[in-house]
Design a protein around this nucleic acid. Structure first.
Lengths: 252, 252
DNA sequence: GAACATTTGTTCGTTAATCGCACAAATTAA
DNA sequence: TTAATTTGTGCGATTAACGAACAAATGTTC
């Protein structure tokens, strides 16, 4: 925690107002925003009016809603990444080759965050897209990144080990063993642990300094692609694509 | 412009710091941020430390960079849209059917902002993705949305009418005529006006209230798909997909 | 390694940005 | 029409945020 004098509370409050909007709150009145953010009505009003003036929100006089300009905020991050530009052609090629969806994600504490996605068909119940967050320990990309890094043991304690499906690894010891295995073999396969019917395989992407901040995957439906086929047929292509991206990142 | 007392200046400054980062400024020192944002070093420092404490930035002690958490900010907008979830299957189907890339965009003043994209192959020089902004008047989706709305004449004056290619419509009168034509025929085709070799066709998506806030397109390379083929073969599929999305939006 | 230049960290007095209450005005509900 | 609820606004009070100045740390040059 930083020094109180170094902290800009108005910025924190402003971001809290922005984040109050979402799929379950597409539009809100002033009073609703104040309630959700636990601010005074006057304070909430000032933030809403400031966002509106800056173009990030629109109001019809009663309801406030976000505008597309909010994407610019997320866009600054994506455009500051080298991997986005570099990986695109390899991801397209891989996806076309295996005729399945592919993604790249990074680790943020106990979650993976989707940075890129080339979708071939709808696999999961939820709509995966840039910005989507999933619990890292039950995803192939999350496990790959965790396994290839010297993560602190405490990270394993953060997970809730929810039993998403009957396949889900739901205790720390099993997870640790699985991560050690992944570290050795250099790839991860998650078979219907987060959602029944969904299977995915992942490989690490190495940055210039040798660290693994990203992973790439192929995701598919279990009734369409066997585990064996994923490993013997798809994994070589995935490794090649991830390897090409790694090489390209080294050349920057 | 709102009343000065209703404006939160710290929020504006904070967002300015966030937006200072991007493709040409992947990392910055404290002094660089202060310089770019024209703030005092002390002020810039407080914003940087606040972002870092909230998880939106990371610092190695000297350089600051954005983290994936910044995507959450843009994600709030995307997840507050109905169209994102609804359009996905139709877009996938369309893209697979015509074997070309498809996108959905919205209009923000004189620019279109990409909200969704299903890419089949690399078409344009720049990497198109969610959040990308392009000048509306030289894109098929921009023209579609403008044409289907009673936009104010003043909007035509905002464009700079840059001559991107020899095909570019580069004056107001021609653009206006083209928009009138689009309004009548209900679709737009832009042939190598923003970038040589790139051609795209677009159709409107109607919201529940009958307004057109979004458009959908098919984009392809001019040497692979003729204008005639775009119109006779691809347009029917595009219109069907856009129509299905429109219908689904009406049912919410 | 010393001297100098540049950048960053910190303190603190100042001030104006932001606060929230109270009441007016407008809108919505009964 | 009345009552309830929400929003708009003014304004005195408070403190959050300010930036200057100096210390400390880091980087550069010789």
């Amino acid at each position: 925690m930083i020094n109180k004098a170094d902290y800009v509370q108005s910025l924190e409050k402003g971001l809290k107002v922005l984040k109050a909007f979402g799929s379950d709150k597409k539009v809100m009145t002033l009073s609703e925003v104040a309630e959700v953010t636990k601010m005074s009505r006057a304070a909430a009003r000032r933030f809403l009016l400031t966002y509106t003036d800056l173009g990030y929100m629109h109001s019809d006089g009663k309801y406030f809603e976000l505008t597309s300009r909010v994407l610019d905020l997320g866009y600054t991050y994506l455009s500051s990444l080298d991997i986005t530009e570099i990986a695109k052609p390899y991801m397209l090629k891989l996806s076309n080759l295996v005729n399945e969806s592919s993604s790249i994600a990074t680790l943020d504490k106990n979650e993976v965050v989707y940075l890129m996605r080339q979708q071939v068909s709808r696999i999961m119940t939820i709509n995966l897209g840039i910005g989507t967050r999933l619990p890292a320990h039950v995803t192939s990309m999350g496990r790959t990144i965790m396994a290839m890094n010297d993560f602190k043991e405490e990270l394993l304690d953060v997970f809730e080990y929810e039993q998403y499906t009957i396949n889900t690894i739901s205790n720390k010891i099993e997870l640790k063993k699985e991560l050690q295995k992944i570290r050795q073999q250099g790839w991860a396969l998650v078979d219907q642990e987060l959602e029944a019917g969904v299977r995915s395989i992942s490989a690490p992407i190495f940055s210039k300094d040798g660290s693994v901040k990203y992973a790439m995957n192929i995701g598919c439906q279990a009734n369409r692609v066997s585990k064996d086929r994923l490993i013997t047929e798809f994994l070589p292509h995935l490794k090649e694509a991830a390897g090409n991206i790694s090489s390209a990142l080294k050349k920057i």
